[in-house]
Design a protein around this nucleic acid. Structure first.
Lengths: 125, 125
DNA sequence: TTTGACCTTCACATCGATGTGAGGGTTTCA
DNA sequence: TGAAACCCTCACATCGATGTGAAGGTCAAA
C-alpha cells in the first residue's frame, strides 16, 4: 500500500510516517516512480510506534527496542551487544515504573468516578 | 522548605518547579522575603507530576486529574462538573490503553532478555 | 562588610513531535 | 488535454517540556 492508505489505516498524518522513517523506525520500499510502498504488517508496526510514543518513549529508544519485540525467538546477535542489553533492561525497568504510576493514578480516578456516580445529584448545585 | 530543598528531594530542576507552578500544578506559599515555601507533602506531589509527565500526560491534563487523586473520599463538587467527569473517564481509558501497550512491550523485552541470557556466549562473535 | 549560596523574575534557546504549505512530479479519469 | 487526487522533497512554524543565563534581592557566616 502507499503512504495515504497506511496513513488512513493507522490514523496517522503522512508527515509523521515520513518522520518515523527519517528516525529509522520504519523503512519503506519504493515503487518505480519513487512512491513509498508498505507491507500490511506496517499497520501494526505504526500503531505500536504510536502507542509507545504516546506512553512517553522517544523515537531514539523505540528504535532500539523495536527489533527485539517482534522476533524474541529469532534473535539477531548483532543486536545483542552488551550495551544494547543494558539499555533494554533499563528501559524495561522504566516501563515498569510507568506502568505502576499509570495504574496507581488510573485506579484513583476510577475510585473517584465510582464515588461520584454513586452520589445522588444535587438540584441546588 | 524552600525551592532548593524541594528540587534536591525530588531531583527536579528549580526551573521546572516554577514551570509547574506557572501551569497551575502546584501552588507555593511565599515567605516574607518573597521566597517560595513548600510543605513536605509537595515532595510526593512533584514526584507524582513527574511520573505522569514521563508517562506521556501533558500538564494541562495533569492539572485536571490531580484534584481528584488525593482526595477521592472527600469530593469537591465544584470539580465534579459533567465535562470534568467526561474528561476524567476519557483519560482513565487512555491510561488503560497506555498501560496495556507498555505491559505488552515490556513483557516482550523481558522475554527477549530472558532468551538471550539463557543462550551461551559465543567466543567468535 | 564582603563573599557565597541562596532566592526572585524575565527572556531567549533547544529539542522532539507535529502542523503546514510551497513547488513540483505521477496517475487516473472525464 | 486538463482537472483531481495522489505522491515527492524541503523548509519554516508551532507547541510543550526543558536548559541556560542575565540582572538583581536576601541572608548567613567569615
Amino acid at each position: 500500500m502507499r503512504i495515504g492508505e497506511l496513513a488512513a489505516r493507522t490514523d496517522t498524518p503522512r508527515r509523521l510516517l515520513r518522520y518515523y522513517e527519517e528516525q529509522g523506525l520504519i523503512v519503506a520500499n519504493r515503487l518505480p516512480n519513487g512512491y513509498r510502498d508498505y507491507d500490511d504488517a506496517y499497520v501494526d508496526r505504526v500503531l505500536q510506534i504510536r502507542g509507545l510514543l504516546d506512553a512517553g518513549l522517544p523515537t531514539r529508544i523505540i528504535k532500539q527496542i523495536l527489533p527485539c519485540l517482534n522476533k524474541p525467538r529469532q534473535i539477531h546477535f548483532d543486536d545483542a551487544l552488551p550495551e544494547t542489553l543494558a539499555l533494554l533492561a533499563s528501559e524495561r525497568d522504566k516501563m515498569t515504573a510507568r506502568i505502576s504510576c499509570l495504574t496507581r493514578n488510573r485506579d484513583a480516578i476510577s475510585e473517584y468516578l465510582e464515588i461520584v456516580s454513586r452520589t445522588p445529584a444535587s438540584t441546588t448545585g
